[in-house]
């Protein structure tokens, strides 16, 4: 069991980093799409109907899916003042509390976005714009996926806490 969990943690870590690196490509594509719209509209007098929605969608995807990478690297922003006050042993206990609090919050967020996500899967919602893309449906599902992904990485981090293989808790980075 211990071994199995350790394997889960390391596979999850690698997966999160892989997705995180993939997200960087999405940001890059987003920059290109926005710059291209400027060129099309100003240079060629042919504004596109897709650029705004596409940039938004690419960016939102990267925002949400970066969560695994950010969690794996312990880069969520927090206040770590008490670490010095309470000393390393108590702080280690606090680390667990922090991880569990994150699990609770993200679990309830996942439950909150569950119904809207299921609703758009049953009946897709479109943007209603000229492009009329599936963006609103996509974003609702994306958020649910992001929450689940976040939870999966949190489980990996909790495993590491119990097995004392936590990565540098970079001072609340």
């Amino acid at each position: 069991m211990r071994h199995l969990l350790a394997r889960y943690a390391s596979i999850m870590d690698r997966f999160s980093v892989f997705v995180g690196h993939g997200c960087s490509m999405l940001f890059f594509a987003c920059i290109i799409a926005s710059a291209l719209e400027v060129a099309m509209r100003y240079g060629f007098d042919r504004p596109t109907t897709w650029s705004t929605e596409l940039s938004m969608t690419l960016c939102a995807t990267a925002w949400v899916l970066a969560v695994g990478y950010v969690t794996e690297r312990n880069r969520h922003i927090s206040i770590t003042m008490l670490e010095i006050v309470v000393g390393p042993r108590v702080w280690r206990f606090f680390r667990l509390v922090q991880l569990l609090a994150a699990v609770v919050a993200v679990f309830f967020l996942a439950r909150a976005v569950w119904a809207p996500a299921m609703k758009v899967i049953a009946r897709p919602e479109y943007s209603g714009t000229a492009m009329n893309s599936l963006q609103p449906s996509y974003l609702k599902v994306l958020l649910l996926v992001g929450c689940v992904f976040h939870l999966m990485q949190l489980v990996a981090n909790i495993t590491r806490w119990f097995q004392r293989t936590e990565k540098g808790t970079s001072g609340g980075h």
């Binding site: 042919r46 504004p47 109907t49 650029s51 705004t52 209603g128 714009t129 000229a130 492009m131």
Partner: peptide, 16 residues
């Protein structure tokens, strides 16, 4: 969507 389509078919370029 509808406004865009109408402006487009009247020869304008809808910007979003």
């Amino acid at each position: 969507g509808l406004a865009s389509a109408i402006f487009a078919s009247a020869g304008a370029s809808p910007v979003s």
